[in-house]
């Protein structure tokens, strides 16, 4: 069954732009990205849109559909009523390049600021066997497809551009948690999570978890555990005293 849908797509560049209207046919089973492609094929051949796998696994087609950060390839047209206008804009937390394409290099800069995995010195490949229970937590974060919807929706940088230098964002808090929980990682990331990556700016409003297309519980399983570990290191006098006495010489970390 086919019907005509009304689309409003943001078109323009950093110099300016606006929402443009399109009426376009929609068939059963289609997703928003299919419709954007149809508009590109039939009405606006110069419409810029980034996409790749069309299966929700590459993280390329991130955009905002009716104001909600989503993957266009995973947003079914059946979630809208036939008379409902569908508004598509680029991610609003990042600089726009053209139309629906944004410059997400902020995230690559932040990725480089996270110290990489550091196993103990002298540990040769194959010398350490990990139990499944030790890697379960980290594996959840490895599902991340780096669509950056969590980064985009986070109000800390979405509504406050000036916070960008001091705030890594939820995707990289998950990365920090993944490494901090890794049994073999030797870097203490707790203090720097607060002081260099700005985890204290997060106020736990959970939008990152709400928009994650992989269903990663970023707030409950990464950010809050990291905040608690930061509290171990910086805000818990009892644990600080324990570390001073020498039971845990590295500032209270438990292995």
């Amino acid at each position: 069954m086919t019907y005509s849908a009304h689309f409003r797509i943001w078109r323009g560049s950093a110099a300016g732009g606006s929402l443009q209207d399109f009426d376009v046919d929609v068939s059963e089973g289609e997703v928003v990205l299919d419709i954007v492609h149809r508009i590109q094929a039939t009405q606006a051949p110069d419409l810029a849109v980034r996409w790749n796998c069309k299966a929700g696994k590459c993280g390329s087609c991130s955009a905002e559909v009716n104001g909600r950060p989503r993957l266009m390839c995973m947003t079914r047209m059946s979630v809208f009523t036939e008379d409902e206008a569908v508004t598509v804009t680029p991610l609003r937390a990042f600089p726009v390049l053209r139309d629906l394409v944004t410059d997400v290099s902020f995230n690559y800069t932040k990725a480089r600021e996270v110290p990489s995995f550091a196993p103990p010195e002298g540990l040769a490949p194959g010398e350490f066997r990990m139990q499944q229970v030790d890697v379960d937590r980290s594996q959840e974060f490895r599902k991340c497809i780096e669509c950056f919807l969590c980064q985009n929706v986070c109000h800390v940088i979405r509504d406050h551009e000036d916070n960008k230098p001091a705030f890594a964002g939820p995707r990289f808090f998950a990365r920090l948690a993944e490494l901090e929980m890794h049994p073999l990682d030797t870097v203490d990331r707790r203090k720097r999570s607060q002081e260099q990556h700005g985890i204290g700016m997060c106020n736990i409003t959970k939008c990152c978890s709400e928009v994650c297309p992989e269903g990663i519980k970023i707030t409950d399983n990464a950010i809050i555990p990291m905040k608690e570990r930061v509290a171990d290191r910086k805000y818990d006098p009892v644990r600080w005293l324990g570390a001073r006495i020498g039971r845990r010489g590295d500032g209270g970390a438990e292995v």
């Binding site: 323009g12 609003r92 937390a93 600089p95 726009v96």
Partner: peptide
Amino acid sequence: TSAPGRAE
């Protein structure tokens, strides 16, 4: 939400 360089 707006900032220089972002979609208006």
